[in-house]
């Protein structure tokens, strides 16, 4: 009996140690980012674009990357949303047979798993084929592909939990598929769908590998879809790679800004999904 108790105690101890380790390390990531980034974060970092000699440590900021990332993230979220909503609705059995729906879900799972660098490589090849340079448009297209499976799968998870009976009472009133979908399914799934969009936005805005070749990098804020565009993840990556300490500090600041954006989006999504759940039937 005593040895059994001891075994229990040992493993419980190991578990607590493990969980503590995971949480401490992850908290450490956030701590390091804030600790290193906060001192380097100034107002001019946020509001100015790089000036002459910026990459040697002179004046300027990363407004180009902040705005660029927002353009990329918002543009791609919008495109992915337009495509995800019909797909997520279409996976219900009213629209699609069981086989095709499960097949599509598996395809989406595989797409979700594909590393972003592969999307980047694919995007680059396609753009080269059409003679497109690295541009805002290219970045948006590739990020849309990256976000699409995340959005659809998260939306579908929510839609699937809607009780069949709820749809039944709607159909029993003599509604068509699309009427039930828009009036009942959309309302019921709305909080989850908002979360899905913001989740995908957070993923997209933080991804560097996919836009490395497709969006390019520039010191200016893009004026058209065909201009290259800077982004925060790449700002971090390029600036940490220089040997000049002042520029490295700016990498820390850029990382902090990126982290803040991702956290704010994550928290807002939770608040919004709560707000939209007013009518939800449980």
């Amino acid at each position: 009996m005593r040895s059994r108790r001891l075994e229990e105690q040992i493993f419980k101890g190991l578990m607590i140690a493990s969980l503590t380790l995971v949480l401490v390390v992850l908290a450490g990531i956030i701590f390091i980012t804030i600790y290193k980034g906060a001192p380097a974060l100034t107002l001019s970092m946020l509001t100015e674009t790089p000036k002459g000699g910026y990459y040697l440590g002179k004046e300027g900021g990363i407004a180009n990357a902040i705005v660029g990332s927002l353009y990329l993230g918002l543009g791609a979220s919008f495109c992915a949303l337009l495509l995800s909503v019909p797909v997520a609705f279409g996976l219900q059995k009213e629209y699609t047979g069981w086989r095709f729906a499960s097949f599509t879900k598996l395809v989406l799972d595989v797409l979700w798993g594909i590393p972003s660098i592969v999307y980047g490589a694919f995007g680059f090849v396609v753009m080269a084929y059409f003679g497109l340079r690295a541009s805002l448009l290219g970045g948006i297209i590739v990020l849309t592909l990256l976000m699409l499976p995340i959005m659809v799968r998260s939306m579908e998870e929510v839609i699937r939990t809607i009780p069949l009976e709820l749809k039944e009472v709607s159909y029993a009133l003599g509604t068509t598929r699309i009427e039930t979908t828009m009036a009942v399914v959309l309302r019921q799934a709305l909080p989850g769908m908002v979360t899905a969009v913001l989740l995908a936005f957070g993923r997209g805005i933080g991804d560097a590998a996919s836009i490395l070749f497709t969006a390019g990098y520039t010191d200016y804020i893009p004026r058209s879809l065909f201009d290259p565009v800077a982004s925060l993840p790449l700002a971090v990556f390029f600036q940490i790679g220089t040997p000049i300490p002042e520029v490295q500090e700016r990498a820390y600041a850029s990382a902090l800004i990126l982290l803040l954006i991702v956290f704010v989006v994550s928290i807002v999504s939770r608040i919004l999904s709560h707000r939209f759940s007013k009518h939800i039937v449980r």
């Binding site: 009780p163 009976e165 709820l166 039944e168 009472v169 709607s170 159909y171 029993a172 009133l173 003599g174 509604t175 068509t176 009036a183 009942v184 309302r187 019921q188 009518h279 939800i280 039937v281």
Partner: peptide, 21 residues
């Protein structure tokens, strides 16, 4: 089917209010 369902009102086992007011 639509007008047919309209002719037959339906009450489910557990009430399911539609997600609206």
């Amino acid at each position: 089917v639509l007008s047919l369902r309209k002719k037959l009102g339906f009450l489910s086992q557990r009430p399911y209010p539609l997600p609206m007011s």
